[in-house]
Design a protein around this nucleic acid. Structure first.
Lengths: 233, 233
DNA sequence: AGTGCCTGTTACAATTCGTTAGATTTGAGA
DNA sequence: TCTCAAATCTAACGAATTGTAACAGGCACT
């Protein structure tokens, strides 16, 4: 549970420090780079949660970096650029950037936009504590499930662990082994039975039809898969 | 598989039509509203993928709507506002908005930002996991077969393995040896019997006439061939 | 102690899926 | 066309896996 890491790639030192100061003030960790080469080298050992990228770099075309980061590595990329033309912004976003901020900017807005991206984009970099899916809202602060009609159903800590695991990796098979490891997996003898029971109880609270569950599917001999359009907020 | 639905909430008709035109041109469905009351009424029957919201509305404070949409309904909210102060933007984003676009805007940029939000919210660039063939749809995420009439039939993991093999190589002979290898081919003695049974069960779910199967043909002494116009999606 | 909640354990029911076995189909050769 | 062995189909059985109701211990609060 470290603070999210934000990388800054800009050739102007003044901008780097301005951004770094504002972001660290807001509680983020930062790494700054003036050249694409250094930045790419650092990626070997760090995995940033958000990448701020300036388009006009001395050694590379910024758009190439954006494309590689966003589409190949799946990172959250925010372009911070002096190019203010609409066409620049459109192509930047089309190339996979998640946001496009124009210089000159106010550091407070950058922080707000970084937060907004972290909030909803990648569950891996959790900062949010509420998830929405298929007419449900899961509030991990208050341990509550809320349905369309606003009806509240509490869930326990153990149930929340399973639910969080599902909501972090929707539409992907999660094996029993993974579950045991992620959760309090002191792999006991019949520990897998306990997992079954947790899931059964969670299913009940989600009002799943036992004969035909829509959200939590069992894959015989493999594990479970959570189907649901998850959005963290 | 509908086009994403974008709602527009703005009290100026000119802006509504400008946005609607650009978004529909780009392939989205749109719904426009001039007042918060109408918009909220429409939410009862529609669930938009993205909500564009103007902050200055005649009948309500726009921020209230943003807050409710984002935090309670979990919608993607983009504020489109004439208020250009940094403080407005920060509070808007802080309240849960996913983006903040300042008037006057270029419709092309709005489209690009809507796309960016939809893109990043759909995680795990799905490798094609749904196939269509001869009035059927096979959903490998949810382990469901869906017929023309929309009736759902679940298929098991083992059945899905066979089905996927067929759908990957339609109209081509698949020998038993290939099947054993592709699937969990711990080639036992009577393992081919197991394969028979899998196919038999799959045929039942596809409502094949045992005397005259249309989709899965047996080639005596050679293997099986799947006839069907497969289109992956 | 008493009450209520959480959570693992147990026991049994239900499901999945390979195996078995008998029925049916296929195709080569008479 | 007829015969027969091999190949295939599928109902039925059973081992392994999973679902869940019921029970029990632990913990917090009265």
């Amino acid at each position: 549970m470290n603070a999210p890491l934000v990388t800054i790639l800009d050739d102007e030192p003044a901008i780097r420090t301005m951004l770094a100061d504002a972001l660290e003030e807001a509680g983020f960790r930062t790494l700054s780079f003036g050249r694409a080469r250094e930045f790419e080298a650092a990626l070997q050992s760090h995995t940033p949660d958000v990448c701020l990228v300036d388009l006009s770099l001395p050694d590379t075309d910024g758009l190439t970096i954006v494309h590689r980061l966003a589409l190949e590595q799946g990172a959250i990329v925010i372009i911070v650029s002096g190019r203010a033309q609409v066409q620049d912004r459109v192509t930047g976003l089309e190339l996979g950037a998640d946001d496009y901020i124009i210089k000159p900017f106010d550091p407070a807005e950058v922080v707000a936009r970084v937060r907004a991206r972290l909030r909803s984009n990648k569950p891996a970099a959790q900062t949010a504590n509420t998830a929405h899916f298929d007419g449900w809202r899961a509030e991990f602060d208050s341990y509550m499930l809320v349905d369309d009609a606003g009806e509240h159903t509490p869930f326990s800590h153990a149930e929340g662990e399973v639910l969080r695991l599902f909501l972090d990796s929707p539409k992907r098979l999660i094996s029993r082994a993974q579950m045991q490891e992620s959760l309090g997996g002191a792999a006991g003898e019949s520990f897998d039975r306990a997992m079954d029971v947790r899931i059964s109880r969670l299913r009940t609270k989600l009002r799943e039809d036992p004969k035909n569950p829509q959200l939590i599917k069992t894959i015989y001999g493999a594990g479970y898969i959570f189907l649901g359009d998850v959005r963290w907020n």
